[in-house]
Amino acid sequence: MASSTSQPESPSRPSDDNAARRLLDSSARLSYDPLTEVDWDTPLDTDFHGTSPEWSTLYGTPYWQELTEAQRKALTRQEAASVASTGIWFEMILQQMVLRDIYAKDPTDDTVQWALTEIADECRHSIMFARGAKKLRAPAYRPHRVAIELGRFFKTVAFGEAAYASILVAEEVLDVMQRDWMRDERVVPFVRTINNIHVVEESRHMKFARDETRRHLARAGRLRRRVHAVLIAVSAYVIVTSMVNRKVYANAGLDEERALREAKANEHHKSMMRASCSGLMEFLASVGLLTRPALFFYRRAHLI
């Protein structure tokens, strides 16, 4: 930890360093190596789902009622792989934003060392998700080209609370659904292990993202806060609408066009998404980021 006598510090620095040191200690005590923790060798058992069925985009629709159990399981496995692929895409954006934030900072500070630890975690998570998707017999699902280019722009221009609150949005949405999946014995065991690893390690990342969002907002003016509130909301919309690729339906042997129509109108899934984001919306409201223009995008994404 940098000494207060070696360089000037802001009033928030000691508290920031203490929080970062606790996160580093937690990481040292409780981290996983997916290469050894996940059972990569046992062949895929197609008698299992890839996600909790209730989280499927078609659950509760007339089409879902027509599907056989085998078709439902095939669909949730493809959906799980699509969520994992989207996770990889955003984790790559996340890593670049965090690296840019700490680029010229003191590497002996605990906060910078925690940021590097988080980046290392995300690298391992991306490999874990990629191997998991492959084992689920899914292709490399990629977001729509527009989403990819928006992500390229966002990771280049986002800074401060815009970067860290967007990181929090992606992590919070995944966290709630993965907590359900990791406890669900209907989900294929290796996916449950992947979800457990991600939930445990991302809990530290979310704590850091909340703290960094608050810290950056403490010196943000009214205009910057309002602009960033919309930027965060747009990023949330792009992330959430990219989670399940339309090709999952055809790859599960379903009628893609019909599945898309029923998924878009599925009130059950919209309700699940809103419930999963209640804590996130409370946080954004508490720090003044839930403005009226931002609410438009959160409602479009069915997060509120």
Rank of each mutant, 00 (worst) to 15 (best):
E257T: 09
L67A: 13
T61L: 12
V227H: 04
T193L: 03
T42E: 09
M97Q: 11
V169A: 08
R21Y: 10
L24K: 13
E66F: 01
A165M: 10
E257D: 14
A209L: 03
Y237W: 10
R274N: 00
T68K: 06
A120P: 01
R246Q: 06
W55A: 09
A165S: 15
D16M: 11
D101M: 07
Q78I: 02
S12W: 10
L168P: 02
R214C: 10
Y237P: 06
Y32F: 15
C277H: 00
Q113A: 14
R224I: 00
D41V: 07
E212W: 03
E54P: 02
P62M: 04
I232M: 05
G50K: 10
A130M: 12
T156G: 04
A28L: 08
F90G: 03
M177C: 04
A20H: 09
E256A: 12
T213A: 07
P189F: 12
A163D: 04
F90T: 05
L35C: 08
A259R: 04
A19R: 15
W89A: 13
Q178E: 13
S242V: 00
K270L: 01
D109P: 03
R183Q: 14
E262R: 05
R261I: 06
H228I: 02
H144I: 02
Q178H: 09
L290M: 13
A130R: 12
G160Y: 08
P139A: 04
L254I: 03
T241K: 15
D47F: 01
L303V: 02
R226Y: 08
A158K: 03
L23H: 05
D47C: 03
L136M: 11
P11E: 10
P53R: 04
P43S: 08
T61N: 03
L75Q: 02
E37M: 05
R274I: 00
S26E: 15
I167A: 11
L303S: 02
R274D: 01
V230P: 00
G151V: 05
Y164P: 07
A252I: 06
L116Y: 09
W89Y: 15
V238F: 05
G50H: 07
E66I: 00
E201Y: 04
P139F: 06
R152C: 03
R142L: 14
L254A: 11
L280S: 02
E171M: 03
M243T: 02
N195F: 01
A19C: 06
L289C: 11
S31V: 00
I88E: 08
T291C: 10
F129S: 04
H198Y: 10
Y32E: 08
S166N: 10
A20S: 14
F129M: 13
